[in-house]
Simulated scan of single mutants.
Amino acid sequence: MQFSGGAEWLRDERVTRHAGVFRYEGLEPCLAELLDRSALRFAQRVAAVDRSGRGITYGELWAAAARVAGGLLDQGVGPADRVVVHFRNGFDWLHAFLGVVLAGGVPVLPDPTCGDTELEWIVADSGAIVLLDGDLPDGVAFLDGGASPDELALLYYVRKCGGGLHGVELSNENILSTIEAVVHAMDLGVGGVRTVITAPLSTAVGCGVQLLPTLSVGGTVVAAGARGIRVPWRHLRASFPTARCVRGWGVAETGGIGLVLPTEFRQRHPRSIGIPFGGMEVALLGPDAERGVGELLCRGPSVARRYWNDPQSTAETFGDGWFRTGDQVQIDDDGFVTQLAVRVS
């Protein structure tokens, strides 16, 4: 087994080691408080733009989400209750997701390829109180008092290796750590960044990597399609020549992040998927680990703690504090990771 802790040029001074694992210092207690502060600070800014070019400000977005939260409260949703959010990319998805967060609930996000039968199973498995997939509830504006960093904040339902689905548990600390990592690595600032959503918002990339970091700094998210853009990154660079297109790696179990390839290293490492960042550490497992080849393992502040209601998969995948990705990779002497084979779901 071989360990690699990331490159010096992506170090974040707010990341320190606690009980053997890197964690962020000074995070907000929960996602709701972070986003509420952002909404108050940037109330007049445009938070999102839909496919037609229609925009909505942070103030308008928060007012609508707070009314959804009040409607959920009327339907019996309380702190830590699960609520399935099942919309295509757009304002309804944003209102529903943020409404659940402001109500103190836990958004449950199904894999975008799920059919009706699988969706019914997700509702049952998660113990969801409500399924949001039509008219949104509307009530008196409400904002929950907040939660603690270690409380469950989000459930992504992803496909298991070999078939089926299971929920990936992410705590408030996991999500907030992902946000901090992206903001720092991408140097987003609060100057009004615009982010094109290139993935379904129900995925870790669409929600955790693209949406939430942008909202946290008062930026604007652009919903370019009903389920995001699915085109090669070279086509994106041609369509958005002044934009930064970032290559990286991450899955729901790592909060959507893990590795990022800085633009200045693309020519020297054309096949690499990046180096660790955001307090992420990587390791190799297997007989060739000492030679830099093996199964990729990850641990860090954004890595999930377990699978929901699936102790067997949890024991197999999250042993000894490391997440076993199932991906075969090579890590060179500088810490750059190259993918050799991807786990087949």
Score class of each variant (00 low, 15 high):
Arg14Pro: 03
Thr16Arg: 13
Val21Tyr: 03
Phe22Val: 06
Arg23Phe: 14
Tyr24Cys: 05
Glu25Arg: 10
Glu25Gly: 07
Cys30Leu: 05
Asp36Phe: 01
Ala39Asn: 09
Gly53Thr: 12
Thr57Phe: 11
Gly59Lys: 14
Trp62Gln: 12
Ala63Ser: 14
Ala64Asp: 07
Leu72Ile: 10
Leu73Gly: 03
Val77Ala: 09
Gly78Met: 04
Ala80Asp: 05
Ala80Arg: 07
His95Cys: 06
Leu98Gln: 01
Ala103Gln: 10
Val108Glu: 04
Asp111Pro: 05
Thr113Arg: 04
Cys114Glu: 06
Thr117Ala: 11
Leu119Pro: 05
Ile122Gly: 03
Ala124Cys: 15
Gly127Trp: 09
Ala128Met: 13
Ala128Val: 11
Ile129Cys: 11
Leu132Thr: 04
Asp133Tyr: 02
Leu136His: 07
Asp138Cys: 12
Val140Thr: 14
Val140Ser: 14
Ala141Asn: 04
Phe142Ile: 11
Leu152Tyr: 12
Leu155Tyr: 08
Gly162Val: 05
Leu165Arg: 00
Val168Ser: 01
Ser171Glu: 04
Ser177Thr: 13
Thr178Gly: 14
Ala181Trp: 08
Asp187Met: 12
Leu188Phe: 15
Val190Tyr: 10
Gly192Leu: 09
Arg194Gly: 07
Ile197Ala: 02
Pro200Val: 04
Leu211Cys: 01
Pro213Ala: 09
Ser216His: 06
Thr220Met: 12
Ile229Gln: 08
Arg230Trp: 13
Arg230Asn: 15
Trp233Pro: 04
His235Ala: 11
His235Asn: 10
Cys245Glu: 08
Gly258Lys: 00
Phe265Gly: 04
Gly274Trp: 01
Ile275Tyr: 07
Val282Ala: 03
Leu285Asp: 03
Ala289Ile: 00
Glu290Arg: 15
Gly292Asp: 10
Gly294Asn: 11
Glu295Ser: 10
Leu297Cys: 07
Leu297Val: 07
Gly300Ser: 13
Arg305Cys: 12
Trp308Met: 01
Trp308Gln: 04
Trp308Ala: 03
Glu316Ala: 15
Thr317Leu: 09
Thr317Tyr: 00
Phe318Asp: 00
Gly326Pro: 05
Ile331Asp: 08
Phe336Asp: 06
Val337Cys: 08
Gln339Ile: 12
Ala341Leu: 10
Val342Met: 10
Val344Glu: 10
Val344Ile: 01
